[in-house]
């Protein structure tokens, strides 16, 4: 599925949209880690929780559970809080 990467993590991917394979949010993040080593830890902490400044959106709604099933033809949007003003 298509995954939108926040620009703060473009250093890993080199582009805003990437393809990742997996049937759940967790599997998608695992596949991102395989493709772009180090990127998962920027989004998921040591306890396996989504970091507080990172929010995941699927079908425009926020996703909290890494076990949430995803359809391959949809998009996962990874959003990072911005503070610049």
């Amino acid at each position: 599925m298509r995954v939108l990467i926040p620009s703060a993590l473009h250093a890993y991917t080199g582009r805003p949209w990437v393809e990742a394979a997996g049937g759940t949010v967790g599997e998608i993040l695992d596949d991102l880690e395989r493709q772009f080593p180090g990127i998962r830890f920027r989004m998921i902490d040591e306890q396996g929780n989504i970091r507080r400044h990172i929010r995941l959106f699927y079908r425009r709604e926020m996703v909290f559970d890494l076990a949430t099933p995803l359809a391959d033809d949809e998009e996962l949007m990874i959003v990072q809080a911005l503070s610049g003003g």
């Binding site: 970091r51 507080r52 400044h53 929010r55 503070s83 610049g84």
Partner: peptide, 18 residues
């Protein structure tokens, strides 16, 4: 939306540009 946390990554415009 964005709960306050200690691991927040502050991105600075002085460094990153805008």
């Amino acid at each position: 939306l964005f709960p306050e946390g200690d691991d927040v990554e502050e991105v600075r415009c002085a460094v990153m540009g805008v």
